[in-house]
Structure formats: structure tokens, C-alpha cells
Amino acid sequence: MGDMPILRINALTKTFDDFTALHAIDLNVHDGEFLAIVGPSGCGKTTLIRLMVGMEEPSDGAIWLRDQRIDEVPANKRPTCMVFQSLALFPHRTVGQNIEFPLKLRKVPAAERKARALELLALLRLPEDYYGKRIDQCSGGERQRVALARALAFDPEILFFDEPLSALDYRLRKTLEKELRELHLRTGKTFVYITHSLEEAMVMSDRIAIMRAGRFEQIAPGAEIYARPSSTFVAEFMGEVNLFDVSANAGDLTLSGRAAGQFSGQQGTLMIRPESLRILAPEEAAEVAVSGTVTAEYLLGSRIQYAITTAGDKSVTVEVLRENGIDGGPGTPVRIGCGASACHLIAEA
């Protein structure tokens, strides 16, 4: 992945009548990276991808592909390609004809087209005899691969994806997530992937851009966003989280050692992930600690999750390995805690 941005978005704004879908956003997409744009429904991610591929015109701002400004270039003249949410495979064409479609438009000779289609079928692990199959004879996963093969046949500078896995069942989605990641590594192309599933974004991408109400909340590698979210919205969006208001003396939290130095008297919210907390032994010391009573427990395969209510009536979630679980069920008094390094202070205005 190069540091050089292949795509630059400057102050991009999109309004529909009196509704603003995108508020002057900026974004750099690096050459060869896998960028996932994640956000809840209606946050503007689909509008953004449609602007990037040329299906919509921006109300203001600019989009640059390398050194060329492309926001006024029509979709069919841009060197980018998109895999649609519905996949948009042509039902009146065979698998082979679908893959060959962009090559046919470029007037590539038939023999050359077929050779490339067969090559792409092999790359996507589809048998050669699928070349003549009708689209309605393919399963959901096979259609995904055909759509990918067609997009790769176009040989785009950037490949965009608009939630293409959202309609698939869980197991198939998991398999295809890994295959897509592998394909990205093998082809070295720039992938921009829109999804509402954080899990998908975490598995596949190099960087994640979190969107909310037409703005980017944070753009960083997944691990960084997970550990150091820039806002409580991002923290909560990235999975289960415990948030404590440290400006109000951390509520029921007892801060000592490094934690007291770092967080006492600060303005903001202290974030601790459930898996960072552990059940403390009766006399065990911890830089961050809190006492409470177990109100519920949930088995999650090899792990176990506890809902604990503190003396101040705050609900805290703890997730530990089953062998580290407590003896006794709901109603058991416990002390939980962690080190200062497992905490992150979100200083929000």
C-alpha cells in the first residue's frame, strides 16, 4: 500500500432539496489500500460511493483521481468500477458474457475476451464450465464471485463495493469476507468498501472510516479505532463498551496509581472494553476498580459475559474466558478492574 493518495475528496457536499446528505467531507484513499466506510443506515455512505463512481453529481467540492479532477466526468468515462449491493448481474447473459461485458464495450476480440473470462473464473475459484451457465443457475456465493470477476475484467483503478455481502447468510458472508481480503492482497488493487457491518470492515480493511450524519467521525486502522475511539459514538459503534464520566469523579470507579494520575480531574469519558476488565480476587489491587453485583450472565462459547450493576446503579459489562469466570450466578457480589493502559479517555466537547 502506497502513501500516495489515489483518490482525494475535498469539501464534498451533497444536498437533496433541503436535506444535506454530506457536509463538506474530506477523504484521502491511498493507492492499493482496502478502505472500509462504515456507518449506520442513512449516514450518507451510499451517497458518497455514488458520488465517487459518478452516479450522482456533487453539490459542492471536488473529487480527484491522481492528478485528474473527476467529479464532472461521467460515470462511463471514469476508470473506476463498482460491485453493486444487488450485484446487478445481467440476467439475460451467461456468466461468461457477464464477465466479458466491459471487454466487449472496449471492442476486445472475442477469443481474447473468452481467455480473460476463463482466467478470472479461475482466479475467483469458479469451474471453467460456469462460463456458459445462466445467472439464475448460480448460487448466492457464486453470483458474488461472478460480479467480482466482471468488475476485475474492467481492470479499474479503484474497485468500489456497495454492501455486496449484506444479503448473504452468516457463514457464506464470513467465507467471502476472507476471500475478498485475499483477493485484495493478490490483485494489489485499491478497494473502497461500503458496509454497515463493523465486523466485515474489521476483517477486511486496512483502514476504516466511520461515518455519522454525513460526516466522518474517525478514519484510522481498525485496531486503532477500536482501542482509541475519537468519540463515544465511535466507541459504541465499534462494539460493546463501558463508558464512565470521569469529570464526575469517575462515578463508582476507584482510580489509583497511574490511572489516578492520568484520568483524575480530567474532562471526558473513560472507555473500557468488556474484555479488558477482569474479575478481581478479594484483596487484589487494580489501577481501575469497581464493585458491584452480577445481575446476568451470558455464555458466548469459550467466553462468558457478565452484566454487573454497581452501587451507583450503573450497568457494566465484563467478558472473560470461561475458566476465569466467577463461582456463583446472578446476585454474587464482585470486584472488577483493569490496568490504566486498558482505558482510553475520550475528551469530547
Binding site: V53, G54, M55, P74, A75, N76, K77, T80, C81, M82, F84, Q85, S86, A88, F90, P91, H92, F101, P102, L105, R106, R150, F154
Partner: peptide, 25 residues
């Protein structure tokens, strides 16, 4: 409608989209 958009996205102009996608469908 994504079928016509996909054709355009892959480089088809209005006439090619009509000929290759809209009319056959």
C-alpha cells in the same frame, strides 16, 4: 435500475446501455 447503472459504470454510453441492457430486458 442498478443494471443500467452497472452498464454505465463499466463504460457503456446511453445507446450501448439501451442496446445491451434495456432493450433485451
Amino acid at each position: 435500475p442498478a443494471l443500467e447503472e452497472a452498464a454505465r459504470d463499466m463504460g457503456a454510453n446511453t445507446w450501448e446501455t439501451l442496446r445491451e441492457v434495456t432493450i433485451p430486458l
